[in-house]
Design a protein around this nucleic acid. Structure first.
Lengths: 210, 210, 210, 210
DNA sequence: GATGAATGAGTATTCATTCAT
DNA sequence: TATGAATGAATACTCATTCAT
């Protein structure tokens, strides 16, 4: 057991070492330009070794997001459970949490979007996908519950809490992306109109003097 | 004259044919996975022909954005010159314009970000870069002037009009990206905090009942 | 007849126009970098037109050499037939002829070597190959006869006249190539030893004080 | 230490394996027609492997020349240091060395000319260029010193030793090229007249009976 | 486990040549 | 005849991934 455990810890240490190197190389070169050799070099390991810890390049990147999601989830849970805070304060706290997340890894948004690409998802192991989905679900659930509480208590406007949460995330994502100059690669769906209108109305309301 | 003109029109038709094909392939596969052969196949042309109309892959993609920018600029100019509208109505009109832009090509935001990548810019011809910059400058200028007018008339909150314009664009971008599932590639800078705080304050203001 | 002839003359004029353009482009860019479009542009014709006058790129280049060979042959014949000259004077005259050839087109040597490439020969029409071979045979024959005469008269060393002729050509080629800095592409055969030894002995003899 | 050394030796063996294959393919097809796939096939390696040992196609070819230059330099040095030989004997020895060089690789001259092409030089690493230049400088320096010594001792005609050396090289190059059938690609300069005249006078002197 | 040499599929771009007008 | 738009085969080079050691 002891030896088993030590091995496991050693293994986890190596994974972190690789993830840190990946984060660095990724932020310097972007996903497509960053090569496995770059990462191996940064991690002071051989390319082959990376594959002992991560199934492939996509899964290595996905693990970056996983780490952030774990951190975010922890923060969200903490905010939710703090009974001293009212809805507005909780929203403040969530915003602060997200800023910390950004601080932890400025590529959050990019990682998250990259993660959601169907091409990427195809190359991930089911377990990893499940873990990511579970964490996302929980974090977003936390946001939604905060909005719900605010609505119920009459503090927030009476909108669907999921829509409010989405708008909030969109604002966050947009600001992150917009304030950087970026390379973006993408795939599209549709049906964004309602969200867009809502966000805009909120935005308008926010800047028009009463 | 007539023959010259007919040729020019024919040439423009081909360019559009290629651009349409590119848009389709790009939206299906994303920039990196889309190959010139894919596009040629979609356009029912040979790969070599693409290079008769576009210098390289990057310039082909850039032309997607150029088209959108031209459309946006036209709309922005129209809004600005409409003396019947007050600041709030102009903002409504700008939002409508942006939605139409999105409708015209849902990949707007992605294209714009891709365009700003330094790697991309390196491969574009100076003329194209100039044209793009000029159009961007003009469109953004239009937004800023609307905000400025609103502020001067006391309709909008007294913020720096450029900051308002940025927040607005961020919101738009964020919603577009968020409501899609995306692959995003990125490089990061910093100093986004203030913008983020402003946007958030606006957002908060917008959803808190007065 | 008159109209036929005029057409033929017109055709020949076009051929020369193209050859001149080819020479220019070739000397500026070298064979591989020079494109048919370059040549067409220089000749102020469309690429397709080139193919109305020359079967392909190789044949176009070969025609450059043909022109030079024609000129050289004329000069050699003239020297041979001048009964006023002794062997040594004839050799001087041949050297002068070759320098004029070089003057006429400094790429002679390169053209000649290019011409002899087996890859090139494959792409030439049999008629053109025959014409080239015939002219080469005649010119070289002239050289050989001059050497033969010199040997018979006891003016030149008693070597095989063909070997002397080869050495002479080699010297000429070598100097042309050596005094330029060059790109050279090649294919090799063998059996050069004897020629090399002879040339060297000649050379040595030439510089050692008697 | 031992393991490091063994690896280095293994690496060198691979390089030689590739160089040998390159030499073969190059001599069969010439530089432009020889593809990296051809070479990889001949070397029984995959195309990608070639790039583990050579930066690019040009550098691969350049390494052919480097090998020859190293060999030549060794021979030249040996001749120069042999105090038993007089100038004439040294010249004989240099000629023998050059013939061995040719024997070692009949494409010497072609390689050397290819090497000097400005297009080629652009693609070589500075270190390789330096090494090549250094070796060339040294070898040519050796030739020049032999001629100088001969002139000083009154054995050779009183010409500038560099001019003599150039003529000698030209003769060698010319013979090599002339006795092969060749594809040659070129760019021309001028000022060759004097060298040409000198070489010719030497040549004439060498074949005219005194 | 760790290595890193080898792989080989994948892709943007060029350019000689053709052919409908 | 002349055009020049279209073709599509050809090729150097990259890089994620594998596997013998």
């Amino acid at each position: 057991m002891g030896i088993q455990e030590r091995k496991e810890r050693e293994r986890e240490r190596r994974r972190q070492q690789i993830i840190v190197a990946t984060k660095k190389v990724f932020s310097e070169k972007g996903f497509n330009k960053a090569t496995m050799d770059d990462i191996a070099g940064e991690a002071e390991l051989s390319p082959g070794t990376l594959y002992l810890y991560f199934k492939n390049k996509e899964e290595l990147y996905a693990s970056l997001s996983l780490r952030i999601l774990q951190y975010l989830h922890m923060r969200v849970e903490h905010v939710e459970n703090d009974t001293n805070l009212g809805p507005e304060q909780k929203l403040d706290a969530l915003m602060a949490a997200m800023y910390d997340v950004y601080d932890f890894d400025p590529l959050v948004v990019i990682n998250m979007f990259h993660l959601q690409s169907s091409e990427t998802l195809k190359n991930l192991s089911p377990e990893l996908i499940d873990e990511i989905k579970e964490l996302s679900r929980k974090s977003i659930g936390g946001f939604v519950r905060v909005f719900k509480e605010g609505i119920n208590r009459g503090v927030f406007v009476d909108r669907h809490p999921v829509a409010l949460s989405d708008s909030f995330w969109a604002l966050f994502s947009g600001v992150v992306l917009w304030t950087n100059s970026k390379r973006v690669i993408n795939e599209d769906k549709d049906f964004l109109k309602q969200t867009l209108e809502l966000a805009f109305r909120i935005f308008k309301q926010g800047i028009i003097r009463s």
